[in-house]
């Protein structure tokens, strides 16, 4: 089971729920890796014909082909497998630009993917009441370096090294929806060079 338990509440972090089928003219799914399981679980309670009006944008990442057949068997109106979120982005933006009133958005998978897709959806004017999310799989974090402002994806250890400026950062439990990222802060600012061994905290 890939349902992940997140650490206790951080007031600035979104609360993720469980996807449930809603009535709507169209349904847009954006998921990565184990997020496919959230879609498959939800499908069990979906009414007949639900997926005919669905568009699934799925990025398998390390799960490879594990979920592809099962997603195909849902027989969605549109199904896209992408090699990365960046590659899927033009398609996502086009889909959101074409969206009509009544579109329901379903996000599933890692926090980084959901946060970024949430940004796109809200910027496109989709009301937050029409967006659901369910966290599945890796708890890796997307982290912005507060010093250089560069964002490092898929951070699993604390501390970690900023992929832009190279500073060693600890991950502060503070999340910005606007940036879809946690804050990373220099860990050896007071004692330069005193960098603790990285611990796998977000796996």
């Amino acid at each position: 089971m890939s349902k992940s338990v997140l650490e206790p509440s951080i007031p600035s972090r979104p609360v993720y729920g469980e996807l449930a089928p809603r009535s709507g003219k169209a349904h847009l799914f954006i998921a990565d890796a184990e997020g496919a399981e959230a879609i498959l679980d939800m499908a069990k309670t979906a009414p007949d014909g639900f997926f005919a009006r669905a568009h699934i944008i799925y990025i398998p990442k390390a799960t490879g082909e594990r979920y592809l057949e099962r997603l195909e068997s849902l027989d969605p109106g549109q199904l896209y497998f992408g090699p990365s979120y960046e590659a899927a982005l033009p398609r996502l933006r086009r889909t959101l630009a074409d969206a009509h009133m009544g579109l329901q958005v379903y996000l599933a998978g890692t926090e980084g993917l959901m946060g970024r897709a949430m940004q796109e959806a809200t910027e496109a004017g989709i009301p937050h009441t029409a967006i659901q999310s369910e966290h599945r799989g890796s708890t890796a974090r997307r982290v912005q370096c507060v010093h250089c402002k560069g964002i490092t994806e898929e951070v699993t250890t604390d501390p970690f090294q900023c992929s832009h400026c190279g500073l060693h950062l600890f991950v502060r439990d503070h999340y910005s929806r606007r940036l879809a990222a946690f804050m990373g802060v220099c860990i050896d600012a007071e004692d330069p060079g005193d960098i603790p061994e990285p611990v796998e905290r977000f796996t």
Binding site: I10, P11, S12, R13, Q144, V146, K149, R172, D173, H174, Y175, S176, R177, R178, L179, M183
Partner: peptide, 21 residues
């Protein structure tokens, strides 16, 4: 950080403050 907190609501931008919540 304003750059990090801009757009947040009252509870969100106070997230890092211990105990008070």
């Amino acid at each position: 950080s304003l750059d990090f907190d801009i757009g947040m609501n009252f509870f969100e931008w106070h997230a890092p403050v211990p105990k008070a919540h």
